[in-house]
Design a protein around this nucleic acid. Structure first.
Lengths: 134, 134
DNA sequence: GTCAAAGTTTAGAATTATTCTAATTTGGTG
DNA sequence: CACCAAATTAGAATAATTCTAAACTTTGAC
């Protein structure tokens, strides 16, 4: 609880009840939920919650860099709380997303004059578990 | 024309009229069109063309590795003909996508046992032209 | 050549993620 | 308390994508 409020304040986002709950959820969840999933999971505890709030909030968080959005093209955009630089592996079978560590990328030469707000590395394929099952 | 047919055959995809036209279009276009844009641009030359065909075809091409899909989250998925390893920079202002060269990424240790089908590096921000205009 | 089977394309309906809108609620300030 | 701005809400609207069932093409067997 305290941590989420702190993070929001630090990012210049007013820590409303909904925002705190959404951020906490993302801080605890390790499974990269969609906006839809987040909405349903939180709806039980915040019955008045609206989808618009979830989307607005996720956009604000993403813009401020608190969370990262992973556009997978299947089942909608997925979100995770940003800790360090890591890439995402999407399993095309079970739809889970795995984090994996990666070096910070470096593009000074190629993209001179470009302002880079976010960078995303997404691999797609079959995860270890699903590969074994075949 | 010949090149597209050849590429399709090599990938084990039967080179139907529509497929050849779609692939040729992607080989010529440098601006990473959406399915929608492709559909409209080709519709003038193939009046019977259906959106379902465009989507089916793009999926087949992507699966075979002939083209790559760039999921940007704004204005739909965008496609480009694969030549070499490169990353994509999406300008949040003008919505253009810029290709830039990048090294092949290397994840042997972190993702042992995972089958990697595709890898995508997407940066988002403001391109040089748009940055200047401010 | 004719036929059936398989594969491809088509138009339009259906679905689904996301955005929009206008009204309501909330929280702080004088 | 009364005011204002910001945040939230429910539900409608939009837009990308998928689905469906029918029509058309191609292929190979006879």
């Amino acid at each position: 609880m305290q941590k989420a409020v702190e993070q929001l304040s630090k990012s210049g986002i007013k820590p409303s009840y909904q925002r705190v709950k959404i951020l906490e959820h993302l801080m605890n969840e390790k499974n990269h939920p969609t906006a839809e999933q987040l909405y349903h999971q939180l709806k039980t505890r915040i019955p008045t919650l609206s989808k618009a709030t979830v989307y607005n909030t996720l956009h604000a968080f993403t813009k401020s860099g608190l969370i990262r959005s992973v556009t997978t093209n299947q089942l909608g955009t997925r979100y995770d709380y940003v800790t360090d630089d890591h890439g995402h592996f999407l399993c095309l079978d079970c739809n889970r997303i795995f984090d994996f560590p990666r070096e910070k990328l470096c593009y000074e030469r190629e993209l001179e004059g470009f302002e880079i707000y976010s960078e995303e590395v997404v691999l797609k394929g079959i995860c270890r578990d699903c590969a074994k099952k075949r």
